[in-house]
Design a protein around this nucleic acid. Structure first.
Length: 446
DNA sequence: TCTGGGGTCCTAGGACCC
DNA sequence: TCTGGGGTCCTAGGACCC
């Protein structure tokens, strides 16, 4: 073990980052007898530049070039992922595409291929499940593994992580980074430090020493706003935060402050990280939204868009076998001011027209007359697994409607999205070009 | 430069009930 | 007539994550 108790192992010598400075690379192999002794052992696996790397598999001519995944350079939208070559020009995820184009006009802009990413994500998942059944995909390109008690099978954490890293690479040809430690939070922070193409393990007892010198922003859940607030209080590094009285943090940040205190010590405190790994859960909300390519105040166009969004939401509810009681409309005007208006029904629904009519009424009631709208959204929550109390007559109607919608879903599967549609029959039509939503590739650095 | 889309969790105020 | 406090539901908004 090194002085700080931090072990880093890098598979290649090529990309070196500042992590190299504060840790000692293990050259020539992996220590054989470092055990976790009854501690939880959590891994976090994060794919390196995932979307870009998958695109490169399908088109090797992209390798080494500046590539931006997210859409055309003149589209309304943001960068989902940027290749390392594009990042050199200052392009990063969550940046407007138009800005990325200003910074790097020679970049290759691609819309992206969600089905390819899903395919590779599933391949990765299969590999992970060979190591432990306790796998939780946290998003399309990252996962948590509970490796506690697997040492006899896979060896100590660092060795197991190397095997895992190689197995993923062998199955997908994709690079990945792995963090390992005694909590989800530790594992997550470690995988970030390991990037790109590395492994970081924090042995039990070394948590505080590892976290202390890191910027507070490195703690998952600390974004721009919390960072600024912490800075104003003179708290810049995780160690500063760990040294504070919980009372002080609670005074300035409420409940969230107490969670922050725990996180600064490497604990899975607060909402995000609670719960065991590998338990499938029902979603708590299902929503769709759309930003128009040109802002519009035209009622027919707005209502057709709302119908389209309602159908997408209804369909997803039926796929999950969920009924929603609360329907929420989201509105955004040209000046980016954003409003939500919700209504909770007396019963739960998964019927497109009911969702649509509720959202449309909310729109008519709350719309600023004549003001062009940039974005509309339909959001549902308050789920149950049944329709809930309806009187007998309504209940029978509901059931027939449900069957009809399931038949429509099957038609859509077979003949495409536009074969059966509420929105299609409407005056305004919904003619906007849409593509499947891509997540973005983590928080922009600095 | 003008800012996507799909989520989770938290806060805070008001209504309503006991 | 005035005044409590706690719990739950609903609504709106915001921070944050990928």
């Amino acid at each position: 073990m090194t002085e700080t108790g931090i072990l880093v192992s890098r598979r290649t010598r090529a990309p070196v980052n500042q992590q190299e400075m504060l840790s000692t690379a293990i050259r020539g192999g992996v220590p054989e007898r470092l055990y976790t002794e009854g501690m939880r052992s959590i891994f976090h696996v994060d794919m390196d530049a995932f979307f870009v790397s998958v695109e490169e598999l399908y088109d090797p001519s992209l390798i080494g070039k500046p590539v931006v995944v997210g859409g055309a350079a003149d589209q309304r939208g943001v960068v989902s992922a940027a290749s390392y070559a594009a990042r050199k020009f200052g392009v990063h995820s969550a940046m407007p595409l138009r800005t990325a184009y200003q910074l790097c006009p020679q970049a290759i802009f691609v819309e992206g291929h969600p089905e390819r990413y899903r395919k590779y994500s599933n391949l990765v998942k299969e590999v992970l499940q060979q190591f432990t059944p306790l796998v939780e995909m946290a998003s399309i390109d990252e996962a948590y593994l509970d490796m506690t008690g697997t040492e006899r099978l896979h060896g100590p954490p660092l060795l197991a992580a190397h095997k895992l890293h190689n197995a993923i690479k062998a199955a997908t040809a994709l690079n990945n980074s792995i963090g390992a430690g005694s909590s989800r939070l530790l594992a997550k922070v470690c995988s970030d430090q390991a990037k790109p193409h590395g492994i970081v393990w924090i042995p039990p007892g070394a948590e505080a020493a590892f976290l202390a010198p890191l910027d507070v922003r490195k703690i998952p859940g600390v974004g721009k706003v919390t960072e600024q607030k912490l800075h104003r209080l003179g708290i810049r590094q995780v160690g500063d935060m760990a040294a504070l009285e919980p009372k002080f943090l609670a005074e300035h940040f409420g409940q969230w402050g107490l969670a922050l205190g725990g996180k600064s010590k490497g604990l899975d405190a607060g909402g995000w990280f609670q719960g065991e790994i590998g338990e499938e859960q029902d979603p708590k909300s299902i929503s769709h939204e759309h930003t128009f390519s040109i802002d519009t105040a035209e009622a027919d166009a707005l209502e057709a868009a709302l119908a389209h969004l309602s159908e997408k939401v209804g369909r997803r509810l039926r796929e999950h076998g969920l009924w929603a009681r609360t329907i929420q409309l989201k509105l955004r005007y040209s000046d980016f001011s954003t409003f939500t208006r919700a209504l909770t029904l007396s019963h739960a629904t998964q019927i497109d027209t009911e969702i649509y009519q509720t959202a449309r009424d909310l729109l008519r009631k709350n719309q600023r007359a004549g003001a062009p709208i940039r974005l509309l959204g339909v959001h549902t929550s308050g789920f149950s697994h049944e329709a809930g109390q309806l009187d007998l007559l309504d209940g029978a109607q509901h059931e027939r409607m449900g069957k009809a919608l399931n038949a429509m879903d099957k038609l859509r599967d077979k003949y495409g999205e536009m074969s059966v549609s509420l929105a299609l029959g409407m005056k305004g039509r919904f003619k906007e070009r849409t593509h499947e939503a891509l997540p973005n590739d983590g928080k922009p650095k600095k």
